[in-house]
């Protein structure tokens, strides 16, 4: 069986304007791939289109997850099939507590008629919150409501840890984080690294990759991958700037 998230010649438009222009990328399980690129290169569009956001129209190409046609699945089906997107701007859901939100997400993964074991669920959630140094009070608070930028990002990682996806896309999870929060978030991600899980880390800055060391780095520009390399590429990029790859 194909054990990767495979994107082949993907074309995506928003309101008739093409944003992703033939992107090909293969993320095997067990690897962490980073995508870097300047603003407007299409990084976040890629993240959202993989998750299934309805504002984005796929006009060409294929995406498969472990051989299964990802684009044929509904948004919630993709999640249950093992895809996870950590949002760049996580939404606030007034009146829905974090605990109930996570519980509903876990419940959705159980066969019909089967109820979640509440005691085990809370025990697991608390353990993972401890790992992310999150205060217990966040379980009873409305999802992301009144959370600081860093708290929202930690909450995204908590969701990832609770849902244990096969493939996780982290969309600029480092933005808005101070160095302590960055370290905590990165530790959470690193603890999740496994031969059965692939990561796509989207970032604007090389800094994150000091903490989450990638197997491969891709540079995205104008809707395409224009360069791929090992982790050293990120350092080189940091040093020489995006104009260097654009010129190449």
């Amino acid at each position: 069986m194909n054990r990767s998230l495979s994107i082949h010649d993907l074309h995506v438009s928003v309101n008739g304007i093409e944003i992703i222009k033939g992107l090909t990328l293969d993320i095997p399980k067990g690897e962490v791939h980073a995508i870097m690129g300047p603003n407007g290169s299409g990084k976040s569009t890629l993240a959202k289109v993989l998750a299934g956001h309805e504002d984005y129209e796929v006009t060409g190409g294929q995406v498969t997850m472990d051989g299964e046609d990802l684009l044929a699945l509904e948004i919630d089906e993709r999640s249950r099939a093992g895809l996870f997107l950590a949002f760049q701007y996580p939404h606030e859901i007034p009146g829905v507590t974090n605990a109930n939100f996570l519980r509903a997400a876990r419940q959705a993964r159980l066969p019909k008629g089967e109820e979640i074991d509440a005691v085990a669920f809370y025990k697991e959630m608390y353990a993972k919150m401890d790992q992310l140094e999150m205060d217990r009070k966040f379980t009873g608070r409305a999802v992301n409501e009144g959370f600081s930028g860093g708290e929202k990002k930690r909450n995204e990682v908590l969701q990832m840890m609770m849902l244990e996806p096969s493939y996780a896309i982290l969309d600029e999870t480092d933005s808005g984080l101070d160095i302590d929060a960055l370290r905590i978030v990165a530790n959470g991600v690193n603890a999740m690294r496994s031969p059965d899980r692939g990561f796509l880390v989207i970032t604007h800055y090389q800094r994150l990759l000091d903490y989450i060391v990638p197997d491969k780095v891709h540079v995205m520009f104008d809707g395409r991958i224009i360069r791929s390399g090992k982790k050293e590429l990120a350092l080189e990029l940091e040093e020489k700037g995006y104009d260097w790859v654009k010129a190449a």
């Binding site: 948004i75 919630d76 993709r78 109930n100 509903a104 997400a105 959705a108």
Partner: peptide, 16 residues
């Protein structure tokens, strides 16, 4: 979208 992206079916998402 946020709730569905966590695997919660659309109907349940609206309810929540």
């Amino acid at each position: 979208f946020y709730l569905k992206a966590r695997g919660i079916p659309p109907r349940r998402a609206r309810q929540m």
